[in-house]
Design a protein around this nucleic acid. Structure first.
Length: 241
DNA sequence: AGGATACAGATGAGGCCACC
DNA sequence: GGTGGCCTCATCTGTATCCT
């Protein structure tokens, strides 16, 4: 797992070095990107204002680095690291959805149950948006067009828990849950199927600069391997610059 | 600190529907 | 009618959080 990588273990405690982004800063950056959408005036100014010690050029450069990394990954120039738990959802993500076979499962006598990758708030919001857009039950469309980081099965499973949570009323909750988020404010997502700004997986995104939405979804995809590392956790691969 | 429990993701079974 | 794809539901299991 990423967090075992000495390069960033405990990096949240790192001092803020101008050209080096800590996970804390990444989180702030990520939140700011969501908060200040593409169309807002002085967007970078506002984003920089959210991250102590970072200037506008810093955040713009960081964003460009992220975009670059995503494109590099997508173009296959860089291999994703392998993980101890080979639940590398990143690779398996589209296996089922696109009916692409990446080979047979490990043939151990006791096939291990995959560890779950927690849904991020952003993914959940996208899920809610997809729900609005395609309605309950069309998990396939939601998965393909909105929450592209999750398979239809995962979306369905998530929905099951979501409705269970909703259905159980508002009685005393012992713990808060991502399912308590029931609205999709503060996030920009594709509005109609015709406006899809997320390319289907077979499209090579390296042909064009991705929008934040595209980047964002791919970052979430990366995040799934980082275990709460924040959607931008992937920069800790350390292969940019 | 450690046990109890709530939560959430994965998976399997069964049913429905469209297509051949 | 057979088959495949997809959905719903139930259950299993790992993890996070609460409680004593």
């Amino acid at each position: 797992m990423f967090h075992e990588d000495p390069r960033w273990t405990g990096s949240t405690q790192q001092p803020a070095i101008p050209n080096r982004w800590t996970r804390e800063e990444d989180k702030l950056f990520e939140q700011a990107l969501v908060e200040f959408s593409d169309d807002l005036p002085h967007r970078w100014d506002r984003i920089a204002g959210k991250i102590p010690g970072k200037s506008i050029p810093d955040v713009v450069r960081h964003y460009q680095d992220l975009v670059h990394d995503v494109m590099v990954i997508d173009s296959g120039e860089v291999e994703l690291p392998s993980y101890a738990d080979d639940s590398a959802v990143g690779l398996s993500r589209w296996d089922s959805a696109n009916q692409i076979s990446f080979g047979s499962k490990p043939k151990s006598a006791e096939p291990e149950r995959k560890k779950g990758t927690p849904w991020t708030e952003q993914e959940h919001k996208l899920f809610l948006q997809g729900l609005k857009q395609y309605g309950k039950g069309d998990w396939r469309s939601i998965s393909r067009n909105v929450v592209i980081t999750r398979t239809p099965t995962q979306v369905a499973s998530h929905a099951q828990k979501y409705y269970l949570r909703q259905g159980s009323g508002k009685k005393e909750r012992k713990r808060s849950s991502i399912h308590d988020i029931t609205s999709v404010d503060s996030i920009s997502v594709p509005v109609t199927p015709d406006q899809k700004c997320i390319p289907p997986p077979h499209v090579n995104p390296s042909q064009q600069m991705p929008t934040f939405q595209q980047l964002n979804s791919q970052q979430i995809h990366m995040n799934m391997n980082t275990n709460h590392g924040g959607p931008f956790g992937y920069q800790n691969f350390g292969f940019h610059k």
